[in-house]
Design a protein around this nucleic acid. Structure first.
Lengths: 212, 212, 212, 212
DNA sequence: CATGAATGAGGTTTCATTCAT
DNA sequence: TATGAATGAAACCTCATTCAT
């Protein structure tokens, strides 16, 4: 599957009837299951359809091609992550900046850990499916939420710039990715959580100082 | 291509005659070229052989399957990165810790940027090819070099622990990956270089303080 | 093609729609045709599909691999032979033993001669296709039919044991195989028919005498 | 490999020098070893050469193609069988006919059992290699030896005709083939030995009576 | 709308054989 | 003569996608 731009992956039609919604969800869920139980290379549209209890034809009624299917699953996951971080940002408004960062990082780590298996599965298909583009889009979303949050910080003027936030986010997700792909233990993840907080706090402090 | 363990990728036979050494290098080089010009999904063994100016059969004399071929290319790249960082570590022995980190980070960023296109191409095939395992192995190698270096630091006792070093490395490579996949401009990379130094320095300081 | 056990050859899916039943039969028939007209070594899945007027993909919908296809054809043939012998056994119940043997041997010879070409073709693929296992299974089937028949013989107590029956069967099929592979003439086969009757009758008599 | 006539399998050159003879024997032996340890489908010319400790090129100096190699091995085996039966025939001259048959059958069974593994291996390659033709040739040889022997029998006039002898031989070898392919136990083979004697004796008696 | 049979291009891999060294 | 690197035709098989029912 050649790489493609973001716009090529939209689902074919928006389900309105109840039955359709159920079908779409079954397919989506089946995709994850197949990904987890069979692996990325054994994921075929037929297998997904079988697992979802529908025919391939039906699958193609809702997704124009295989990539749009995987993209949709990917997107769901990214939205979940996005929402979790946004909620954390909301909650952290007006708190001291180090507290803000702590909450955001913990929210991110927690949501990734909760869906550790899905995350790992998706890392494997990401390159074929427009992953980088979607990651970029999500990163922008997170950055915006964080910027808004930081503006409410009582103790830091000026707040860190876009670049620093992007750096922080990519460093954080990179570290999580390593750990997830390595199949790290819960104990490791607990320690990572602390250290990522530390990393982000200290970097933001340093970046702000420098920027000033 | 199903994922597999590291041991499954050994080349098939070691070139004896001079002729075959040339052949192996031609194949390896052709693999990168095809990866860059045609993309990961258009990389077929036939195409690689064509580009290398040999027959498919010849390719299979040296690599038992497609994955071993890609693995070899991946390994070359990782070794290049590994060597660059090790050299930087050597050079940084006995310097102050912040200088050490600066040199290491810059070495890493520079070597990745030099082979930006290969890096991006390899990100795409990594999951199918034993990428995570190889990344892990390389990370260990880098960590060891860094540990040795840190022991010579005149100004920090005790030196940061393994965990912190691994965190730093994964954060750093994650950030680079994001930038490379996004096709960042040289200007951006220059700024990243500075900020990654900052990020690593401040995190190491914080981690050391906390550990103490 | 490596040898394999009997269980590895099950067809892939059972035809549901009428269309597919036709397809399966066309493929099966085409396999025999290709075997006869092109020979065992020129039998490729593509050629079979072509001859059947379907695509290779369709062939693989019904047979998981080439061997299962040949196995199926082999099985059909063995079933045909099995049925012919069973019918003869039924008809021979309660007749004198020498008459029984005559009928069974003649039934066997006749059914093999009727499908002489298919037999010869199958001898060539048998080793690659689970032939020996299938032959064994069929031999058991024939032996059972013969045992039941012999129990109704009015003139022989006790009836010959399993071992003797197996001997008789393997001698008989071995002789037929030689003649078929040698491309014997109809005249030869007529003579063989008589002599095989003689051979089996005299052996059974001798074996019974000895066993008693 | 398409089937071919007997003449196409002659070795390329007759080794005269000592070294060549050694090489040819090494290759021949290696062929059997590969056949036994790896199976018919894994038998490649390269593997045979490796096992024999020579290069493929050398192999092709002595055998024009793969089939001639297998044919030669097959031929060796058949010659061994032929010789064994011929010797038995010699020894049986002038004895009563039932003793003759006993000795011949036992000689055949014994030589096949001694090389049981080779026999089984060769059954698998026979169809690809001119097996039937070679079998036919050997059968003629055996038949001649038996005819000569029978002419010296003091107790039977006229001696059985060619046809009956061929029948007996093909029945006997067919029965042995079944048992060998089924991997029969030594105990079974002992019993078979007795029963095959019985079978051949009683058939010859019957056939002679009928012919008269 | 749903089904699932059919498609067929295209991928990976093997291996008998050759021929320059 | 011996070597073994190179050849490349050809085999098997997969799977995203379509479309008649």
């Amino acid at each position: 599957m050649p790489a493609a731009s973001l716009t090529a992956f939209e689902p074919r039609k928006t389900p309105i009837q109840a039955r359709s919604t159920i079908t779409v969800e079954a397919i989506s869920e089946a995709t994850i299951q197949v990904l987890l139980t069979q692996g990325a290379d054994r994921l075929t549209t037929t297998r997904v359809a079988d697992r979802a209890g529908v025919s391939v034809g039906t699958l193609y009624q809702y997704y124009p091609n295989k990539r749009s299917l995987l993209f949709a699953v990917f997107e769901d996951h990214m939205n979940k992550v996005g929402r979790a971080v946004e909620v954390a940002c909301e909650d952290a408004h007006n708190k001291p900046i180090s507290e803000m960062i702590k909450l955001v990082v913990e929210a991110y780590v927690d949501v990734k850990m909760q869906s550790a298996d899905v995350s790992v599965a998706l890392y494997k298909v990401a390159p074929d499916v427009g992953g980088p583009a979607l990651v970029k889009r999500t990163a922008q979303r997170l950055r915006k939420a964080i910027e808004s949050m930081l503006l409410t910080a009582p103790d830091v003027k000026p707040s860190p710039d876009r670049f620093a936030i992007d750096m922080m986010l990519s460093a954080m997700s990179g570290a999580m990715r390593s750990a997830l792909e390595a199949g790290a233990s819960p104990a490791i993840f607990r320690k990572m959580r602390e250290h990522l907080v530390l990393l982000c706090q200290s970097y933001m402090a340093a970046a702000t100082a420098k920027g000033a």
